[in-house]
Simulated assay, not measured.
Amino acid sequence: MSTIPSMPEDADGGGPLEGAVVAVAGAGGPAGHATLLRLAQAGATVVASDADAQRLAEGVDAARFAHGGATVMGDTVDLLDPGATREWAAKTEQDLGRVDGLVHLVGGWRGATSFAATDLADWDLLHDLLIRTVQHTSLAFEGPLARSGNGRYVLISAAGATRPTAGNAAYAAAKAAAEAWTLALADAFSKSGPADRPPAAATVLVVKALVGDAMRRERPEATFPGFTDVHDLADEIRRLWHRPTAEVNGTRLWLTPQP
């Protein structure tokens, strides 16, 4: 199965992302790398962050190389520090004049063999990775996204938040909390403008799990049923700017069969 990304319809710019400024949190992983590329292809200026400076630099360099002339920049930001996160949002808006998107790709997983075997230390870790980072980025970027007039806050969530399993209690609960927080942001957007034209949208994209080229190379015999390819995810993220703000605000869009 080929995983070479196809070119999106607005690969040469000219679409709603031409000239837009989009921040990507957690951009160092495979999904982040694919998203940086897609956004750059669509003509956006991309501001990426990740806790891992090396992985972040690899993604930024790859997006720049694949789409010559693209403006893709990266910086390590401690998203567990609310002050640092607000500073990142404010500096991005001040330096680039606007912020049209925040894509939240910060992830993490911990599981147990059974419900009784759940280690609450896993909850502490996932609470920070999956909830605190959403809280800090949403609070920091709400104003800039609303001022954009066509902003998007995008959370990547998991099907397990809808139907938790015994061994995934901590992970599912953290994802469900992050979804609820994001939908509260959507409600804030809906109340800050006309009902049919909120100034920005907050959207949850739901996947079972993600798969990229490296996973396929490591497990060539696997079929990954229900998984979403990272390039397909990046396409769905990009398409959110092609749809009316009111249509995607406060929605959970399933990229895997809904349980």
Rank of each mutant, 00 (worst) to 15 (best):
Y153V: 08
G83D: 14
G68H: 07
E142D: 15
F115I: 12
A117D: 15
E247Q: 13
F227N: 08
R243D: 10
S49N: 12
D81N: 15
T76W: 03
S2A: 03
G19V: 00
A186N: 04
A40D: 06
G212W: 03
P199H: 00
V211G: 08
F141E: 04
G13L: 08
G151E: 01
A42C: 13
L39R: 08
A172D: 11
G28T: 01
L120W: 15
R197K: 13
F115Q: 15
P257D: 05
E179L: 02
V206I: 15
T85V: 10
A161H: 05
E218D: 11
R55F: 00
R217V: 05
S6W: 00
D232H: 03
W109V: 11
R132K: 11
A201L: 04
A53E: 10
F227T: 00
A186D: 05
E179M: 02
L210C: 09
Y171H: 13
L96F: 07
V77H: 06
W88D: 07
P259N: 06
V72S: 10
V103S: 08
V154W: 05
A186K: 04
A70L: 05
D75P: 02
P164T: 00
T113I: 13
F141C: 11
S138R: 02
G108L: 04
Q258C: 09
T228R: 06
A140R: 02
V134T: 11
L125G: 06
Q41D: 07
L17I: 03
A170C: 11
V106W: 09
A70S: 14
A51M: 11
G68R: 14
A140S: 09
V46C: 10
K91M: 11
R197M: 01
T45Q: 15
A158Y: 14
M7H: 06
L139I: 02
M7P: 05
G13P: 09
D52W: 01
V99D: 07
A159C: 01
M7I: 05
M1R: 14
A201N: 02
L139P: 03
A188K: 12
R219D: 04
L129G: 09
T71V: 10
R98H: 08
V24L: 14
R132S: 14
L17N: 03
P8D: 06
R132G: 06
G59Q: 02
T113Q: 14
I131T: 08
R219K: 07
A186M: 04
E247K: 13
A209N: 12
